[in-house]
């Protein structure tokens, strides 16, 4: 499975294995980089997660690869503002985040009527075609 190569608009992508992810994030915190967000890609048997930071209008990123089924350590201890995006990862990708500061346990954005996390590639979201419209 491939990972993202060069991304135009991101100055640098630093790879951090899962175990040392929080250390890598802490280093950014020390350099006073502003946390932007995290972004997740479904890569088949694992997730590719990018943590994006702003350094003087340049975007830099930390990447970690998370095998499906594994737990993701929460970044909220380092950057409190990550709680929104981590709740979103729980909702939309079904990733379990460990040590989340404010945990909505998967009911942050979506209701519990979904049987599968909607942003996973294998989840086909049924299309609402116009012919269903009674009028």
């Amino acid at each position: 499975m491939s990972v993202l190569g060069e991304v135009s608009g991101i100055a640098r992508i630093e790879d951090a294995p899962l175990e040392s992810l929080l250390d890598a994030l802490r280093a950014y915190r020390q350099r006073q980089a502003r946390f932007i967000t995290a972004s997740c890609l479904d890569r088949g048997d694992r997730f590719e997660i990018l943590y994006l930071f702003d350094e003087d209008l340049r975007t830099v990123a930390v990447r970690t690869l998370l095998p499906k089924g594994a737990k993701l350590p929460s970044a909220t201890g380092v950057y409190l503002c990550a709680f929104l995006v981590e709740n979103e990862l729980q909702d939309l990708f079904g990733i379990e985040v460990e040590g989340l500061h404010i945990d909505y346990s998967g009911k942050f954005l979506v209701t519990d009527t979904f049987d599968a996390p909607p942003l996973l590639k294998q989840t086909a979201c049924e299309l609402q075609l116009p012919k269903e419209n009674p009028s």
């Binding site: 909607p118 609402q128 116009p130 009674p134 009028s135």
Partner: peptide, 26 residues
């Protein structure tokens, strides 16, 4: 609100108000 419009492919939408309550004017 009338038909779902541009949000056709969105999983979290019901596709229009008339799916839920009766509508008098579109």
């Amino acid at each position: 609100a009338s038909s779902g419009g541009v949000f056709q492919n969105c999983y979290n939408c019901m596709g229009g108000v008339d799916k839920v309550i009766p509508v008098d004017v579109y």
